[in-house]
Design a protein around this nucleic acid. Structure first.
Lengths: 316, 316
DNA sequence: CGGCGAGCATAAGCTGAGCTGATGCTCGAC
DNA sequence: GTCGAGCATCAGCTCAGCTTATGCTCGCCG
């Protein structure tokens, strides 16, 4: 029977590319990983790695085995989730990841709800860009996260992860006067940092109109972005959620949680509520949209702590 | 992450009932199993066993975890099968189990075909009653087996195993003259050994006609049974396959293997061929039927060695 | 009702798996 | 040509996993 701890090292090698990177992720030395993978090759009776220059790559057999290992990990996660469901009351850690806008608008009320209803849960939240979420879920340092993708920057499915839809938002052009995107060729732009999904999305939206945005400022926080727009410092593309005021945890104390049984996406402000522009900012809706989802390791969706978290966020 | 070797001990405890029996199956001492299960409880953060008198039973959490462990083992078996599929040529052991009639009629040509087409396979065959097959598959001492059940003695599905249909046979009353089953109240009977499926099936068939068979002889081998019938020693119920002459491995050399893609059950003698009664024996078809299937551990159906075996048997 | 044996838990001790550190080799960047 | 990254292998240490010993509980039997 193939050893699951060694399979995890093989899968991580498929993800991270080098034995040194896998060792760093597990707090091992590269020597330990090398020996464990050699032992896995003996168990498998097949070469799983090949030396290529200074590094290694997976053989076809190694790639097949790493892919199948995901199913094994998902089955173990389902076993752990089923075990957790046999306990009365939710306990243990729940490590949550979220991008800044979600942290400001969705999480405060959800965390307050969870803390009140499940005092045994040990909740921690890390702020990070959605592009970094997959690696953090795979290495177990996050259990659940909010991620998003844009029409213009779709994300390939990852076999180690599962997602569930939460929001489907309109994107807006924020300026000091009504403008079409096509008319912004000569505007100065406020872009998110290079490497973020929002940065890439904005570049692609402008390219679709036949120009490249001329970057004046870079800022990742939408409150900052909107403040700069109001100050006449440029134009930007922002999502609907960024226009929601910071949530109040005390509002959650009064609100009854909604049913988690219907996960269909809704706008962040509920049916029919239009976003409110900050003073001095004019919003023009764009065709492109942003979708926000829950993401978690394959097999953990039924874990009662994660189910409680997703229910609390939907109710926020 | 729950340790898979310990999960296997838990699952085996669910099957076998005592720590001593699990230890014996693994060539461990009961103390080793006890300590490993205690460690699994610490990993799980839940009580999985409860002391009941001299023995132990699984708690509800333990039962849930043992059930989920089957999914993990199935995923590992699929991984192993996928790995085997990456090799050119089939190698390694293939441990086959079969009941006597199948060994005499189906296996010789199939084994000859496999040996010729896959000389790297190490084929071994054990004869055993189908009732013993599940435990042997679970403990890994068999990889694939032929099993059967009867209309009157159905077998509950086992989550650790998967099956695929092979034969669907008529059962016959064997006597020295034409007889209905209902007329056999006063006949002397030749029954299979107590504890076998065939024994139970015959008892239930007679009970359905309102009487209990009066056992004169007990024999498990259908050749022996038919010889006793011909000698006027009693009546018996026998399956269609028991009437097939022993197969000739050289016939397989001439026959082209059939496609394994359509697994629909057929009669053992092909379409329209009636069974041939031995000299002195008259066969009366009964309504009850016997179904013969392949059985293997969940997840191993796609293993190329098992696929080759099932294809070879279907072609026999 | 007492004796006996089966089943199990726990502790002590031994063995080998799994890790670190040292060493040496290959390869690619500069 | 030098240097550093990446990896394989070996030696040695630590601790997980096993056996053996011991003791307790429970159920069967005389």
């Amino acid at each position: 029977m193939l050893d699951v701890r060694k399979l995890r090292l093989l899968r991580d090698l498929a993800d991270r590319g080098t034995i040194a990177a896998v060792a760093a992720a597990h707090n091992y030395t590269p020597s330990a990983v090398s020996q464990q993978l050699a032992a896995l090759e003996r168990e498998a009776g097949a070469a799983l790695l090949a030396r290529t220059g200074r590094g290694v790559t997976l053989t076809p057999a190694g790639a097949v085995l790493a892919a199948h290992a995901e199913e094994v990990f998902a089955a173990l996660e389902r076993a752990t989730a089923a075990l957790a469901a046999t306990r009365t009351g939710l306990t243990g850690p729940l490590r949550i990841g979220a991008f800044p806008t979600a942290m400001r608008t969705l999480l405060p009320t959800a965390l307050a709800t969870l803390a009140r209803e499940h005092p045994g849960l040990d909740l921690t939240v890390d702020e990070l860009d959605p592009a970094l979420v997959p690696a953090r879920l795979r290495d177990g340092s996050l259990d659940v996260a909010l991620v998003h993708d844009y029409d213009l920057v779709p994300i390939a499915p990852d076999p180690a992860l599962e997602t569930a839809p939460l929001l489907d938002e309109t994107m807006y052009l924020a300026a000091t006067r009504p403008l079409d995107l096509a008319a912004c060729r000569d505007e100065r732009w406020i872009l998110a940092g290079p490497g973020t999904l929002c940065h890439t999305m904005t570049i692609r939206a402008c390219e679709a109109e036949g120009f490249l945005p001329r970057a004046r400022h870079h800022a990742d926080d939408f409150v900052t972005v909107l403040t700069l727009v109001a100050a006449g410092q440029g134009v930007a593309v922002v999502p609907e959620l960024a226009l929601r005021p910071p949530s109040s945890p005390s509002a959650a104390a009064a609100a009854a949680p909604s049913s988690p049984s219907d996960p269909a996406p809704v706008g962040p402000s509920g049916p029919g509520a239009a976003p409110v522009a900050p003073a001095g900012v004019v919003l023009t809706p764009l065709r492109t949209r942003r979708r926000t989802r829950f993401a978690y390791r394959a097999g953990t969706g039924a874990h009662p702590s994660i189910a409680a978290f997703t229910a609390a966020v939907r109710a926020a």
